[in-house]
Amino acid sequence: MVKVVPPVDNAKVPLTKPVEGVGGKTGLWRTMYKPVVDSSKCTKCFLCEIYCPGVCIVVDPVKGATINYDYCKGCGLCTDVCPVKAISMVPEE
C-alpha cells in the first residue's frame, strides 16, 4: 500500500491539473461547427470530459454532459470519442 505524504518542505512537484478553459475564452472564434449533446443518448461514461483538450465539458452523473461554449473551440474530439454517438457537430448559427 502507499501513503501520500507531502515533502517536509512542501517542495513544488511538477504536477498539472486541468482547469476549465485552459486555452482561454473562444469569443467570436470557433470552427464552423459546435458540438451538441443529445442527453437522451448520453450514458455518462465521462469519455468526452476526459478527452476535451479545452477542459470545457463536465459530465454530471445524472444529467450527463454539458458543454461550456465560452471555451469550446469546436475541435470535435468529443464527437469522435463518444461511444454512443450522443454528440454531433452542428453548423453555427
Binding site: M1, V2, K3, V4, V5, P6, P7, A11, V13, P14, L15, T16, K17, P18, I50
Partner: peptide
C-alpha cells in the same frame, strides 16, 4: 513500513506529470 511518496497518479482525477512550466 508502507511506501510513502509525495503524490500519486491513481486515475482518481486527471493529472499531468512533468508538463510545461
Amino acid at each position: 513500513g508502507e511506501r510513502r511518496q509525495p503524490y500519486v497518479v491513481d486515475g482518481s482525477e486527471p493529472i499531468g506529470v512533468g508538463g510545461l512550466t
